[in-house]
Amino acid sequence: MNLSFTVKSFSELSNEELYELLRLRSEVFVVEQNCVFLDQDNKDQKCHHLMLWEGKEMVGYTRLVPAGLSYGEMAIGRVVTSPAARGKGYGRVLMEKSIEQCQEIFGVGPIRIGAQTYALGFYSSLGFMAEGETYDEDGIEHIEMVWKP
């Protein structure tokens, strides 16, 4: 595994990095999941962006969201791994780094996610606990989950 990661604020992203992360998000959320939605929601500019690389290829990405922007707590959103890189454990590496970086950037505290319900077991294995009722977001069933330090 030749993996590395970078975390940058929006203003620190290069044009190439921004293009790659938006392309990856579109590849999975719009094309693969057949979900028509406005991905650019004016939150990216206030977030940090964690990019997981295998060599020079972006194989995973998360958006690290400060408290108060999406939820009362800090959050991890837009969790995505490249279809070509699945089955290698990169999702776990991506989320572990995202939790670590949220705590480093925003301070120690709980982290909230809006998880697609099919991934409930995966997020539970990382210490997230389901909270509340399931809800529909863009035609996909979700549930909020919280990780506590």
Rank of each mutant, 00 (worst) to 15 (best):
N2K: 12
L3C: 11
T6E: 15
T6R: 12
K8S: 15
S11D: 14
E12M: 14
E12Q: 15
L13I: 08
S14M: 09
E17P: 00
L18V: 01
E20H: 10
E20Y: 08
L21A: 10
S26V: 08
E32T: 08
N34L: 09
C35Y: 03
V36Y: 06
D41W: 01
D41F: 04
N42F: 09
H48G: 05
H48Y: 15
M51V: 11
L52D: 03
E54L: 12
G55V: 08
G55R: 08
L64N: 01
V65W: 01
P66V: 09
Y71S: 07
G72E: 14
G72N: 10
A75R: 01
A75L: 02
I76V: 15
R78L: 09
R78M: 09
R78C: 05
V80A: 11
T81L: 13
R86H: 05
R86V: 07
G87Y: 05
K88D: 07
G89D: 14
G89Y: 11
G91H: 02
C102V: 09
C102G: 03
Q103D: 09
I105P: 00
F106P: 03
G107T: 06
V108A: 15
P110Q: 12
R112T: 14
A115Y: 03
L120F: 07
L120W: 07
F122R: 03
A130E: 14
D136A: 08
D138S: 09
G139Q: 09
I140A: 11
E141A: 13
E141H: 04
H142K: 13
H142E: 13
